[in-house]
Structure formats: C-alpha cells, structure tokens
Design a protein around this nucleic acid. Sequence first.
DNA 1: AAAATATACCTTGACAGACGAGGTATGTAT
DNA 2: ATACATACCTCGTCTGTCAAGGTATATTTT
Lengths: 107, 107
Amino acid sequence: MSIASDLIRGHTETIILAQLLKKDSYGYEINKSIQVATKGEYELKEATLYSAFRRLEAAGMIESYWGDETTGARRRYYRITSVGRSLYERNRGDWEVTKRLIDSLIV
Amino acid sequence: MSIASDLIRGHTETIILAQLLKKDSYGYEINKSIQVATKGEYELKEATLYSAFRRLEAAGMIESYWGDETTGARRRYYRITSVGRSLYERNRGDWEVTKRLIDSLIV
DNA sequence: AAAATATACCTTGACAGACGAGGTATGTAT
DNA sequence: ATACATACCTCGTCTGTCAAGGTATATTTT
C-alpha cells in the first residue's frame, strides 16, 4: 500500500459511515467499494475493518443484521443509525478544519 | 484541544520538519510557533514533541546542538538534514495524495 | 522574601487503532 | 482435484500519543 496508515488513521470510521450513508452494506462489499473509489490506491485491512465495525456498533453508530442469502457465504449487513449520521456530519466538519490546519502547518 | 489527535497523527514529524526548514529551532519555540500559526487551535503535547525529536534524530532527519545562552534555561537546537528535507518533500506529496483520497471517500 | 509564572528541558507507563498472521466456510472456474 | 473468489472472524504485536510526573533558571507579582 502506498499511503501510510497513520495518515488515514482517524478517518477509518468516517469512511465506513460514508459508505453506509449511501446504502446498507457488508464488510467485503465496503472494502471493494473503497478500492474502486480510490482506483486501487487504498484498501482497508480486514482486521482494521472488522475492529472498526465492533467499535461503531458498540457505540451505537451502526446496527447489524444477517442477510438472507440462500446461496454463497453469509453476509453481515450494517446499517447506520441516526447517532451514526450525526457522528459522520461532525467528522466531516472536523476534516475540513483539520485540512486547513495541516495546510497551514506543513507548507 | 478541539481537533482529535488521530487526525493529526502521522503529520507530527512533517510539522516539525516544516518548522526547521525555515530556521534552526528548539522544542519550546517550535511549539509556540505552531500555536501562533494555528491561532491556538492546535498545540503539540510536550511528550509527543520530544518523542518525535528522538525518532527524527535517530533516523538522521535532524541533528541537535546546545545553544550558547548565557542566561535563562538551556536550549537544545535542532537542524534539518538533507535526508530530512527529502522526507519533508515526500510527506508533502503524500499529504496531497491523502487529501484527495479522503475527500473521495468521505463525501 | 516568598510565591507564582514563564521559559526550557526530560522520562515513564498506559492506551488505542492498525494490521500481520492465522483461522473457518461456501461457491465457481480451471 | 486445485485454485480462486466471496465472506466472515480473532489474537497478539507494534507504534504514536499523551497524562503525569520530574528538573532547572529567570522574572514578575504579592
């Protein structure tokens, strides 16, 4: 992977929430979507992804339910809650602030 | 402090290198400069700052020397090396890439 | 004269998020 | 048969941040 994880750290949850904002989804799909969205420049490591799911669900930001696939591997779907939506909005704002902050510090 | 440290994590070293690019400086002054540059929105914690100095010096990115103050507390000055300058340039580039990446992922 | 504040350095230990390495199970293509 | 893609999961390690503590000098306030 090209981009250092410390540069993305702190955005993992927001990235997941952003995906769930569009539609309910599951781990594998979310990860693929991210790869597509970044043209392969970035992918979440599975361990990172699943530990983020645990945190987000424990915090009430997302809810999970099993898909009703009759064929293929089972899928655990996640849905964003209203609290999760608020967190997403806040994180979006923080990102805008942080961007300006870092730009003013490293140039 | 308003901005979560996980959003700045990974930029600490670049921020320090950026300061040293302008002129040799020492811990206390660098920290003050950061506070001024961000109008008090951000400050490095001392422990973070000093552990970053250790890492950067061990990696040959900066060099240190004692100031010749005849009065007041002693100061350990840092100077950026040519390797450090390269790292700074690379980190700057990574930041531009990361910015685009995150923007494409969280919106 | 004593106390508080500012300058300036430092270390230790705890914590949290990222992730390498390992695992399980189903279905399809070679 | 073998490999690959889909899809889930856990454990243990590593690394950067930082709270809490410390030392020492100089100035300002009480």
